[in-house]
């Protein structure tokens, strides 16, 4: 009798917990679906050719985000170009060269610390270091440099993981045949680790596209069209708002919510696209690893 009531209590408790588990997972999914749906529904109708391919004009009363689109593209490309050699180099150093474990620990700790620093602090540090100390002023270059530092830990981590997955026997084989260390890395270690580096790139690009707080004081809020690659002066000295910063400016300072939602919808689409690409690259990486282990 007593065991029966006990087991019923247990059964009820089990059911309640199970229900809670399902509810919380459903809540997370509903949040994502609601957010995505709402943003796309409100934003996509306002994504027009005019918005995408012109710049805002007060005279004609039109809105355009072409400058911001281009700024985002420049910042992504510049940040990646800066962070790739640095991050991949640091990862190679950690897995191939570093002799003292203490040094490895120091570099890994530094990378973890960089990953934990909030973006607003990057914004301030970037402003102090790049804008003021190096005299770059509020410019896209300063913004790109700041974001390169911010994405450094991502590239280091993903590259390091894929370098570690290259079998030791490859290296021994190459060295045994008389290859130098750099020659071995270039020909034997890096090619199979390429997928990891690509994943790191995509993750960093996603982080850069979504970043705003670090750019507010480094790349600034310039909204006009610049021909950045026309001259070094343009690139190094003109401020420019990326899509995220433009969203903030339109929503908070100009109360133009239609444009803000249009930008938000574009950002969501970019996020989705980058996410899927990263997943695809990750799957390829895992498949390769599976082949190698067989």
């Amino acid at each position: 009798m007593s065991t029966q009531t006990l087991s019923r209590a247990r059964w009820v408790r089990g059911c309640i917990l199970r229900l809670l588990l399902c509810l919380s997972a459903a809540l997370v999914c509903a949040l994502l679906a609601g957010l995505t749906g709402y943003i796309l529904l409100r934003g996509l109708p306002h994504v027009t050719w005019q918005l995408l391919f012109t710049q805002s004009s007060v005279l004609r009363g039109t809105r355009g985000i072409l400058p911001n689109l281009l700024n985002t593209l420049y910042v992504v490309l510049a940040a990646l170009a800066l962070v790739l050699p640095l991050g991949v180099g640091a990862a190679i150093y950690l897995t191939e060269y570093a002799a003292s474990p203490r040094l490895v620990r120091a570099v890994e700790f530094a990378a973890e610390t960089l990953a934990g620093i909030p973006s607003i602090i990057y914004g301030l540090a970037g402003m102090l270091l790049f804008c003021q100390l190096l005299g770059l002023g509020t410019s896209l270059l300063a913004g790109s440099l700041t974001l390169a530092v911010m994405t450094l830990p991502i590239v280091i981590r993903t590259t390091q993981e894929s370098l570690k997955s290259v079998p030791q026997s490859y290296r021994e084989g190459a060295l045994g045949l008389g290859s130098g260390k750099w020659h071995m890395i270039r020909t034997v270690v890096l090619p199979p680790a390429m997928d990891g580096i690509v994943t790191g790139c995509i993750l960093s690009a996603g982080r850069v596209v979504g970043e705003s707080a670090a750019l507010l004081f480094t790349a600034g809020m310039g909204m006009s069209l610049n021909r950045f690659f026309a001259s070094w002066e343009n690139f190094a000295h003109s401020s420019g708002a990326t899509l995220t910063v433009a969203l903030y400016v339109y929503a908070k300072e100009r109360a133009d919510f239609d444009t803000a939602f249009a930008i938000a919808a574009l950002l969501m689409l970019f996020t989705l696209a980058l996410n899927f690409t990263a997943k695809w690259a990750g799957r390829r990486l895992r498949r390769r690893k599976g082949e190698r282990n067989e």
Partner: peptide
């Protein structure tokens, strides 16, 4: 469900801010 969670982490913070605000 897992990709949904990952996507949630990829949404830029200004987008959260915009939806929160409106």
């Amino acid at each position: 469900v897992r990709p949904a969670v990952e996507l949630l982490s990829g949404i830029p913070s200004v987008v959260y801010g915009l939806v929160g605000m409106l």
